[in-house]
Design a binder for these strands. Structure first.
Lengths: 324, 324
DNA sequence: TTGTAAGCGTTATCAC
DNA sequence: GTGATAACGCTTACAA
């Protein structure tokens, strides 16, 4: 490992024959004579100089680093949102913490990030505990939350209520008891576990069946297997996510229950897997890439002006394939 | 947004009635009297104090931040490796930069990170340009590269050569010209585009067909569609990744070419999609979670002792499903 | 074991 | 327009 020394603002100042505060002004768009600017242009370029953000953050109010708290990386929605954020990123570094769906770790992550000099924090999670709400309100940097609506802090979300409404026509003439709702416990993710189902539950007068699963496909398959051992196969399944639907589908196919002939399935998210699986999965598509763009832009807005609490919602659309 | 002030080491010192260097020693496991320790335990706990890593890194040699350069988030291998790194993480923050498979951005990312006070950099990429090699050797912090072997820097990889050998028995009595190799251009990822095929190419005396694709499923499907328009369907397809295989499969099924009856397919990676698709995809499975653990541990080792250039390889195993 | 003082790389203040 | 100088929050001699 060669010992190339890190180059500092002092080096640049010395090499250009100017004071270091002049270099700082140069870097921060202060007023500079054309001559000095030219000299600095050359030196900075030659030595590939980049200011150290850690040092900058000590004195500056901004550090160019944004904390991102995610519940998992292994999710289409998540990676698309990250891509969206990257797409509109104006040179910030992302300090990403994966909490693996653990509420305690989420709180810790936010606390830790807040103590560093990050310019803001993006929290992706459907799981907002009371402790989390309290912490989010104490934090002194801008925060935007995705995955859960709230009056207490800034949020950006897909319109889960509307997404559920998109499915209501499908169940217009259906016997409510023939429908099985498959989703996570609302207490672990209210938006996904409940909001997506609101309109459906109402349309069915709450007479459908309901089964709680996890976000994991394999675990969901096991839960569905157990269900099928003691129940007749449902005619209609509405799953809170594609991944959950895929787990259910696996269990059904093991029992040679034909989809959609015997059981129809529809879900939410439109992940790539929905296109790959046989039969193709009908599902509500959300533009998570755009949502990621919103997230980043909203966070940057918050740093500029005085925050006005907002809660934009991004609408999805139903993609019909063969499963329903 | 409430204006809770960030709490500093000075506050803690004042509140505990000690000097700030004493607090520093306390935090860094220096010698402290039992009495002082007790006092600080209380104060630190009460105020939830966490030292600011940005400030720490200025004077300290370490910052508790590790740079991670990734080519994409939307990859099973990637997310598993991240999970592995998290699993053995000893309290470091990950500064993650997504380069979207862009060689230029990769170089920039490494340069930028090196200029910050990160304790080390993990680079995940199959694409090592000459410029990248040069930059990696100049960097003054430990670097571990995954995705490409090299004599010039530290690497950790799956054993792609061996993985290819695992497939040789499958093609023992096969007409070489009946085989189609589907993978990315070796110049964009030598490991995946070439090394995985080495043993197979040799076994077939280089008489098989070969087609270059991208890492994208949809794009690969299009490429395969074009191929099928001008060629008879191959009897055997060996794809460099599951995603590529899935793209090919889509094109085959559009043409009603039965798999495995008419065309057998095998691939590498064992992503969840390989299990979901019909027919189930036979593929070489790698323990990317373990690889992630290796990556992190190796990086930490490098910070400790004098580096001895190493290049460990993790072996995969063939998972037979229905596609071959 | 403790505190004082210097300094890490940067920006903000303020004379020049 | 420029360059000393004092912070920022922390660690590390060094002296007590």
């Amino acid at each position: 490992m060669s010992e190339k020394e890190r180059i500092t603002i002092n080096d640049i100042a010395r090499l250009a024959g100017v004071g270091k505060s002049t270099v700082s002004r140069y870097l921060n768009n202060g007023s500079i004579s054309a001559k000095t600017r030219a000299k600095l242009d050359a030196v900075v370029k030659e030595y590939d100089y980049e200011p150290n953000r850690f040092a900058q953050s000590l004195k500056k109010t901004s550090s160019g680093m944004i904390g991102v708290v995610v519940p998992t990386f292994a999710s289409f929605a998540l990676t698309e949102m990250m891509r969206g954020m990257d797409d509109v990123n104006q040179g910030d570094f992302f300090l990403t913490i994966n909490t693996y769906h653990d509420a305690k770790r989420q709180v810790e992550a936010v606390k830790q990030l807040a103590q560093q000099n990050v310019d803001g924090i993006v929290v992706m999670t459907g799981q907002i505990t009371n402790e989390m709400t309290a912490v989010l309100q104490q934090v002194s940097v801008p925060v935007v939350v995705q995955g859960q609506r709230s009056r207490h802090f800034e949020t950006v979300n897909v319109d889960n209520q509307h997404a559920g409404e998109l499915l209501v026509p499908l169940i217009a003439n259906v016997q409510p008891t023939d429908v099985l709702l498959l989703g996570v416990d609302p207490s672990s993710d209210y938006n996904v576990g409940q909001t997506r189902f609101n309109a459906i539950i109402q349309a069915l007068d709450n007479n459908m069946q309901r089964l709680y699963t996890t976000f994991d496909r394999t675990e969901t398959a096991e839960i569905m297997r157990n269900y099928l051992a003691t129940h007749t196969s449902p005619k209609y399944i509405i799953a809170a996510t594609d991944t959950i639907a895929l787990g259910a589908l696996a269990a059904l196919q093991e029992q040679h229950i034909a989809v959609p002939a015997n059981t129809k399935i529809v879900a939410f998210d439109n992940t790539p897997a929905a296109e790959i699986v046989t039969p193709g999965l009908s599902t509500v598509s959300f533009d998570y890439f755009a949502l990621g763009q919103w997230l980043y832009r909203r966070l940057k807005d918050l740093s500029q002006a005085e925050p006005v609490l907002s809660d934009p919602l991004l609408r999805g659309e139903l993609v019909r394939r063969s499963s329903w």
